[in-house]
Amino acid sequence: MKIIVCCKIVPDEQEIGVLPSKELDLSKASWKISQYDLNAIEAAKKLSSETSGFLTALSVGRSSALEGTKIRKDILSRGPEELALVIDDTHMFSDSLETAKAIAAALKSTDGFDVVLCGTGSGDLYSQEVGIQVGALLDIPTVNNVTDIRPNGNILEVERTLEDGIEVLEVTLPAVLSVTSDINVPSVPAMKEIMRAGKKPVHVLEVPLTDALPSINNLSQQVPDQQERRMIIIEGDDEEAVESLYQFLKKEIL
């Protein structure tokens, strides 16, 4: 089975600063694999081993995110045999369709695939729509919120968790699946895998993205006003502390 796992490289949210204009300062943030895509990579690795498949990772983005060898190795140390990249600085990839069109174009340029796996959403924009839109653009089956994948010959039996129930679906291939962040616990790459990652091939694809135009205009992006909090903080867990807590609760709600 040929499996392609999509992963987005995003700024590390712990390192995002705030400018005096209340806009985000991404300039000092380092790049990392979007955390929900780690679950997609893990699920892809498992499916690949169950089907004696071949796993390729795909990432689309700007050069600032994708040029670094560290991030490339990080992806490759987690299971994929090769990495395909679409690097394009003329796009912001800031809406779900723009990104989906770029991924669809990249997928069309490959020599075929059986399954494309995506995470539930990206750590930065979290629209949770890219996988679905990729499937719809390619006109192939697509399922979101997948919590289990069981290969059965050339079809997949897929469990999808909804708010009020669980669906078991039969999906013919090729297909695009978006997995949840609780489908697995991503494993930490072993030293051997980290060493091997540097030797795995990285292909920079030449894919024209002329169709991938944005359909959303970002008018502004501002840090929300922080809710005023009293911040009465006391230290210690003795009787006195418990009594002040009790008095506070009594005054507020009891």
Partner: peptide, 22 residues
């Protein structure tokens, strides 16, 4: 903003040539 609605939204967006605001 349910799981199923997001799936419908994404597909519709692709057919209507628009992104989804989630």
């Amino acid at each position: 903003n349910s799981v199923r609605s997001r799936c419908i939204a994404g597909k519709l967006g692709a057919y209507l040539d628009t992104a989804v605001i989630t």
